[in-house]
Design a protein around this nucleic acid. Structure first.
Lengths: 132, 132
DNA sequence: AGACAACGGTATCCATTGGATACTGATAGC
DNA sequence: GCTATCAGTATCCAATGGATACCGTTGTCT
C-alpha cells in the first residue's frame, strides 16, 4: 500500500500534510489566525491589526483560510457592507501550537539579533581581509 | 520609551520578533530544521531529504539560517568537498514548537481536505446556479 | 594521458507571487 | 448632488522561487 495519503510525512512532497504545513507557514495566514484568536473581526479591522497588508493579499489569505476550513466568512446585508471573519473549531485548535511558536520567536529575538550582528561582522572582516 | 525593541509583539511590523516569526514560516527553513533534528547532514543529503528543493533555494535557506544562528556550516577540506550542516543549541530549541506544529498538520489533514472538497463543491454549485 | 564521476555549490533565465495604487458599487447623511 | 464608509477588484510593477546548465577540484578508470 502507499503511504502518501496517510497522515503523514511532512517531508513527502506528495503528502497533503506538507501542503497544510506550508499553509501554516504562510506569511500572513498565521498572523491572521492569531488576531482572530480574540473573536470575530471585520475586514478593515483585520487590515489594521495585521500591520500592514494590502487588501488584495489579505483577501487571498482569507479565501484560502476559509477554503481550508480554518475560518468562516459572514456577510451582513448592510450598507456600508460588513463582513466578519471568525475562527472555526479547527482554526482554534491551531491557536495553541501557533502561540508556542510566537512565544519562541518573541523570547529568542535577542539571541537571533546577536547572531546576525556576529555573522555580518564576520562577513565584513572576510571582505576586508581579501579585497579582490 | 519605545517598545519596538523589546520582545515583542509579532503584530508590530517594526518588531524584530515579526521577522523572526516569518523566518520560521519560511517554506523550506522549517523543513530543514526538522531534518537536522536527527544530527548533522550534508548538502546533497539535505536536498534529497527535503524533497524537492533546487540548490539555489536550499543555499539561500541555509545561509539565512546560519546567519540567524540556528545552524552551523562546517566545511571539511576533502575532495570531493564535504559540507555538513548542524543545528545549534538555538536551532534545537526551535525543534519542539516546530514538532507540535507538524503534528497538528499531520493529524488535521483529513479535516482540511474535507473542508476543501466542501468549499470547492459550493463554488461549483454557485457557478452553475448563475452562469453569466 | 584523457574522460568521467562526486560534491557543493553559482549563473542565468523565466514563471509565479507579492505589493502599491487606483478604482468600484451600494447607500446613508448632509 | 456630493461625500463618506466598507469590502473588496483591477491593474501594473518589483521581488521571489524554480528549472536548468554550468564550474572547480581531484581521485579513479581505461
Amino acid at each position: 500500500m502507499d503511504t502518501n495519503n496517510l497522515p503523514g510525512n511532512v517531508l513527502d512532497p506528495n503528502c497533503p500534510s506538507r501542503v497544510v504545513f506550508q499553509r501554516i507557514g504562510d506569511k500572513w495566514a498565521s498572523l491572521v489566525i492569531q488576531v482572530l484568536g480574540d473573536g470575530p473581526v471585520r475586514f478593515s479591522e483585520l487590515r489594521k491589526m495585521v500591520n500592514v497588508v494590502t487588501p488584495k493579499v489579505l483577501t487571498q489569505t482569507l479565501r484560502t483560510l476559509e477554503r481550508d476550513g480554518l475560518i468562516t466568512r459572514t456577510v451582513y446585508a448592510q450598507v456600508p457592507p460588513r463582513v466578519e471573519y471568525e475562527l472555526t473549531a479547527l482554526g482554534e485548535s491551531l491557536l495553541q501550537p501557533l502561540t508556542m511558536l510566537r512565544q519562541w520567536a518573541e523570547s529568542h529575538v535577542p539571541s537571533i539579533l546577536e547572531a546576525r550582528d556576529a555573522y555580518d561582522d564576520a562577513q565584513d572582516d572576510a571582505l576586508l581581509g581579501s579585497p579582490n
